[in-house]
Nucleic acid binder design. Structure first.
Ligand SMILES: [Zn+2]
Ligand SMILES: [Zn+2]
Ligand SMILES: [Zn+2]
Ligand SMILES: [Zn+2]
Lengths: 146, 146
DNA sequence: ATACAGTCTACAGCGACTGTAGAGGCAAGC
DNA sequence: GCTTGCCTCTACAGTCGCTGTAGACTGTAT
């Protein structure tokens, strides 16, 4: 039950120290106790919470959603419909992105295979970037990070 | 051969005015001529260049790469190997991302299908985010925008 | 003449961190 | 006790690729 410093927490949850402090600053992690000299002190609950955040981030959930999920965890008897909705939205976002990226893959594939070396002036890759009309997916959607 | 204002260029290339000025500020678009009153004036070459940038961005190329591509266009007799390398790197990045997202899709799918409603305390979605060990792709790679 | 649309600069903000500077803290070996 | 070397602290700037805003000026149509 000894409290751990931020460095130990960082290793325990595999999250960088600066990121932990950032999560604290934006309210994802609560404000921890401090030692006499002002160092942050954490317990095993903090490891769990931080690991939860990390996994949620790895799954691509935005921080606002993670805040909601953590808030819901403190009300365990409430309905999980909100949780499920958040996860389904995320799944939808992932699928949409998969579609976009698959289209990009096809187009880039076509480009690189049609380049047979030579001068820039006659390069098919350049031509393909220049000429959007050749493009299979006529209008790409704006690329946003997941 | 009449020069066009930034608004016309914006419509011609389907790029927002603020974005055009941003591209100018970071050196993707050159510094255009100005009217007596200081308004930017563009010609058809600018439409081509801006459209090129737009399509490259839609394909996910980072701005540094686009800078390189534009630079290469001004040396049409140089070897297109660099161009091809940039495109192949991009294709690799897209494929890597596709793999990551496919793993995310599977995991999210499993999560949402195993939730049967009820209280948050017994929600499988929550449990899955909490328990990373259940996870098929044991360690997800850090999610970075393409 | 008046209305309205377009353009100008300069700067702040987004998300989710990462990196830096410069200061102070802590444990182990000598 | 002292040095060595890592650990932690705060505060702030930078990343990428834009987007939005404020407040002033310009251009065009009726
Ligand atoms: Zn080529
Ligand atoms: Zn295309
Ligand atoms: Zn549930
Ligand atoms: Zn997982």
């Amino acid at each position: 039950m000894k409290p751990m410093t931020i460095g130990r927490l960082s290793k325990a949850a595999n999250v960088k120290i600066t990121t932990i402090r950032y999560y604290e600053s934006v309210g994802l992690m609560g404000t921890p106790d401090r030692s006499e000299s002002g160092q942050r002190l954490y317990g095993s609950l903090d490891v769990e919470r931080l690991s939860f955040i990390r996994h949620a981030r790895e799954l691509g959930f935005p921080m606002d959603d993670i805040r909601t999920l953590i808030e819901l965890q403190t009300h365990p008897s409430s309905d999980c419909a909100v949780v499920n909705k958040i996860a389904q939205n995320q799944l939808g976002a992932v699928r949409k992105r998969l579609g976009q990226l698959a289209a990009l893959e096809r187009e880039l594939e076509r480009m690189v295979t049609s380049c047979e070396g030579g001068k820039v002036a006659s390069c098919q890759v350049m031509a393909s970037i220049n000429d959007h009309t050749e493009c299979s997916s006529k209008d790409h959607e704006r690329i946003k990070p997941l």
